[in-house]
Write a protein that binds this DNA or RNA. Structure first.
Lengths: 165, 165
DNA sequence: CTTCGTGCAAAACCTTTGCATTAAA
DNA sequence: TTTAATGCAAAGGTTTTGCACGAAG
């Protein structure tokens, strides 16, 4: 979707956001800056509530309201900084879509783990299939379900629920 | 996920559901039967509310409460009769996962249309990629975003209310 | 008969919105 | 100075749940 991350002159997420806002006649505010900073502070998948919680713990007074977090996440998604990627437990999570390589996800049915993997040929194959339908692909979202390596091991290591009394 | 549809002795959705329920110590009720019947009455994608609406229109008194519809859809998904497939407008929709060939979806960013397409090699490719990660694939969900054939046609094709004089 | 399932209404959830106030540019 | 953005609380929309009653096995 964007290839800026591979350019020699990659700009920061905050700058990219500011540029996007300008084109929409919108403003880079203190709150938006706080959110971008917090979002890009680590690479983990998150839901709006996770972020709100993280922001709530800040002692430096750089707090942001729940509404603003929601509003800003939506903007960041439109801007191409974030994307929604998968639903480990039926709920969608965000991840960085800027400065991070294209990849897809494996979701373990047993433990719920979300595993990233890269495979270029799948992307090409998908694009080709779309083209045959007269469809111009801009992006895709692929979730693979099944059992991860850990959960496939026959070990009794895994916590077992007692359903028989 | 299931290959029963390709077996010579395919059973009906209702029967498959009954068998599933038995294994869980649950019962095939009149309400569940009504829901399965209505769900498999046509092949369109639907949300819980669509189904509730359809059931509400019935004049034969075979009505089912909203709670029961939700509870039953969840069971039917676990049973393999249904699956959630895509989000044309940000919301997920159900489709038949039984007696219907494996396929993926193209979603038009412009008009929101949901287009099904089949491509076996993508499935194989995905399975192979998963295997390389030590992951045993049971299923997948692929959504391709972009622009559909209709929306790609030059603008003049669209209906114009006012012809300039 | 013994559970399980249902309908109902209330609750729980998550997200969006209206509005007065504050602050970018 | 203009107008977008924020915070708050209230509203929205969807899904889940507790409970008493009814029904499947």
């Amino acid at each position: 979707m964007n290839d800026l991350s591979t350019l020699p002159t990659a700009i920061s997420p905050a700058e990219k956001f500011r540029e996007y806002l300008v084109t929409k006649g919108q403003r880079m505010t203190r709150e938006r800056d706080i959110i971008v900073e917090e979002v890009f502070a680590n690479h983990e998948h998150f839901e709006p509530d996770d972020l709100i919680e993280r922001l709530g713990h800040r002692t430096d007074g750089r707090r942001v309201s729940r509404s603003t977090v929601y509003r800003t996440l939506t903007s960041m998604e439109e801007c191409g900084l974030l994307r929604k990627v998968a639903r480990p437990n039926g709920r969608e999570v965000y991840e960085h879509d800027y400065g991070y390589p294209q990849h897809d996800h494996l979701i373990c049915d047993t433990c719920g783990k979300l595993i990233e993997f890269q495979n270029e040929s799948i992307g090409r194959e998908i694009e080709e299939a779309a083209k045959q339908m007269g469809f111009l692909k801009s992006g895709h979202r692929l979730e693979v379900y099944g059992t991860c390596e850990d959960c496939r091991r026959p070990k009794q290591r895994r916590f077992r629920k007692l359903d028989m009394i």
